[in-house]
Amino acid sequence: MELSASSAFDEIRRVEEEVRKARRHFGTTLLITGLAAAPFWWTQLLAPDWVRNAGYVVWIVGGIVLYAVPRGDRHRGQVSAAWYTRGWVALAFLVFLLPPAVGLGLKLGGVDGLDWLVALLCLVSGAPAIYAGWRFRSGR
């Protein structure tokens, strides 16, 4: 098939837009995860029981909606950035494991009065995901 220069340009622009859409979607998912991480861990580690239970339900339902429900657009494949692929384990560790690990460690060790440290970790836990989401959305 003969491909003219202008149709080659049109195809390049179309594909670039598809990639931009996918990156924006992925970035938004990371951003929401990061923004939700701090309040979630706060409810799980520092709040009263009823707030903890409510936070848990919201986190699970939100996770299903965000990650498991099929998207409106047709893409199921993924785009990524090299730095994200290399760093996702560290990101997942910060978002999902560090706050409960430290919280549980303090509880098991019988250490009191360090709620400020747990609160700080809750706050920090979402920061890498927020940063990654921002970079994906801005195409960096």
Partner: peptide, 28 residues
């Protein structure tokens, strides 16, 4: 590069740092 499918692959990979096989298949 100057062939319809290969051009689309190159354009997609130039715009994304990395893309998985499925993404390319759906896009192209």
């Amino acid at each position: 590069i100057h062939a319809p499918v290969r051009l689309s692959i190159m354009a997609a990979l130039a715009a994304a740092d990395e893309a998985d096989f499925r993404f390319l298949k759906e896009t192209i």
